[in-house]
Design a protein around this nucleic acid. Structure first.
Length: 466
RNA sequence: GGCGCGGUAGCCAAGUGGUAAGGCGAGGGUCUGCAAAAUCCUUAUGCAUCGGUUCGAUCCCGAUCCGCGCCUCCA
């Protein structure tokens, strides 16, 4: 028993997490299509996956995470052509932007970020295997399709009855050659809209279908069968269903044991998406003066399987909540005074237990944060009563650090005080020593005008960036 | 139509068959030269609606209403 239970989309049940290889968790997390800057709805999924990753590490597992970069598909081709750029140059800029945003959100890097265009041979090999085993067929135009009629388990993830699959409204004109409307492309024959984007293959020039990259790359980096596969709920069907069909038909073993899917980020009650145009990018939000850390908290604080309605009001609430965390840690440091950590005080021990119990239960982040804030309240009360020993304070500091290994949001990035602000702080300190309140207040106004806030605490002035 | 998610205080959000965590906001106290901040306390007789099971249901069962997602672009 690992104690960690996860909701598996396959069974729609909570299941105890047991990796295939003892002590090692292998996970594949569907990544971005790099045709544009990702929006924060996309990042909700990556923050969820980061929490999952960090929780596995907290539980003592070595984690191998793979996140793919989809750098060839209809949209990347379309938009690179519109920009008049080679595909690789066009996608490179969005790959870079993606990693910048991931850093701003304090998301730990995965072990592997394979790009689709670097794995065409692996995909061709997989398609050949499927062809040899009779799961794939070649259509008149040179495209290769997966035949779901040859794969009885089709629909097991989405819980779809194949007879109930309604023919899609959006059936592309070049898909008349399919035997079954639900068959999906493994290899797409080149057409003129693809321009110079094409690779040679046993079936002629063309490009891979969307789903096949994930099957080929997960196999390469994680083996034919691994532990966890994640993505947004919109990936359940068809993307993950198709991945399962391809991989399991080719390998004859389960692709992944656990399938975890996170709910959507909403805006005004509707799914945030590029096509709806109701999205915010991280850049936009940072430009409004919010910190990546605040956005991370906002995305993190709601359970991953519940829809999250994004508002600036809740981002403000996140900021205020984090300020409370910061005040507590700032207060704890002098209380500890560098003393060695003792045993956790009882109230902190209880909070630590609740924190772990909460995250063990399918990453119940709300209950874990409740434990955090209870600890802060009790810690403050104990400090008010001057009952916290340095050893206690050091132990609580260590607990917060341990928690932050999971949350990635408690530690405030240091703010360097610029020289002009520091000079005013020094002058103000002198003025205050002389009880020259008029000058002190004038300096405070000057500092405020430069975007900083001064607080007078028992230990002196503290300046923070507004 | 099929497969799903959600409806808990002003807002956000956990949770349990025995009487509602936490965050934000609000009100009050403490601290303070003033301020700001902080901190402590208080803040849902009720958990969409209607039935049922039960000694007892927000939590179990049934039905209904509302919002949202997927059903071959989508985290």
């Amino acid at each position: 028993m690992s104690g960690f239970r996860v909701h598996n989309t396959l069974s729609r049940q909570l299941e105890d997490f047991q990796p295939r290889e003892a002590g090692h968790a292998r996970m594949y997390t569907c990544g971005p299509t790099v045709y544009n800057v990702a929006h924060i709805g996309n990042f909700r999924a990556y923050v969820f996956e980061d929490l999952l990753r960090r929780w596995l590490q907290f539980k003592g597992y070595r984690v191998t995470q793979v996140m793919n970069l989809t750098d060839v598909d209809d949209k990347t081709i379309r938009d690179s052509q519109a920009a008049g750029m080679p595909l690789a140059d066009y996608t490179a800029q969005y790959k870079q932007a993606f990693f910048e945003d991931m850093r701003a959100l304090n998301i730990q890097p995965a072990e592997h970020y394979p790009a689709a265009t670097d794995h065409i041979p692996e995909m061709i090999a997989l398609i050949r295997t499927l062809e040899e085993k009779g799961y794939a067929y070649r259509a008149a135009d040179g495209s290769v399709y997966f035949s779901i009629d040859q794969w009885p388990a089709y629909g097991k993830l989405a819980h779809l009855d194949r007879t109930g699959l309604r023919p899609g409204v959006r059936v592309a004109t070049d898909e008349y050659d399919k035997e079954n409307a639900a068959d999906f492309a493994l290899w797409k024959a080149w057409d003129e809209r693809d321009g110079d984007v094409a690779w040679n293959s046993p079936w002629g020039r063309g490009r891979p279908g969307w789903h096949v990259e994930c099957s080929a790359m997960s196999m390469k980096y994680l083996g034919p069968s691994f532990d966890i596969h994640t993505g947004g709920v919109d990936n359940i069907f068809p993307h993950h269903e198709d991945e399962i069909a391809q991989s399991e038909a080719a390998n004859g073993q389960p692709l992944a044991t656990y399938w975890l899917h996170c709910a959507h980020l909403m805006v005004d009650g509707q799914k945030m998406s590029k096509s709806r145009g109701n999205f915010h990018t991280l850049r936009d939000i940072l430009a409004r003066g919010y910190a990546g850390r605040e956005v991370r908290y906002e995305l993190l604080a709601t359970h991953y399987r519940a829809p999250l309605n994004f508002t600036f009001a809740s981002l403000d609430a996140a900021r205020t909540a984090l300020r409370r965390v910061d005040e507590f840690t700032a207060r704890l440091a002098p209380a500890a005074g560098g003393a060695p950590a003792g045993a956790l005080p009882g109230w902190a021990r209880a909070a630590a237990d609740r924190f772990e119990t909460a995250l063990d239960e399918d990453l119940n982040i709300s209950a874990a944060l409740a434990a955090l804030f209870d600890a802060i309240r009790e810690g403050n009360a104990v400090m008010d009563a001057k009952l916290l020993t340095p050893a206690d304070a050091a132990a609580v500091q260590a607990l917060l650090k341990r928690w932050d290994g999971v949350l990635g949001v408690l530690e405030k990035p240091a703010e360097a005080v610029p020289p002009d602000i520091q000079a005013r702080l020094d002058k103000r300190q002198t003025a205050r020593a002389a009880k020259d309140w008029k000058l002190s207040d004038a300096l405070r106004d000057e500092i405020a005008a430069r975007g900083w806030t001064v607080k007078d605490t028992p230990k002196g002035q503290v300046a923070t960036k507004a």
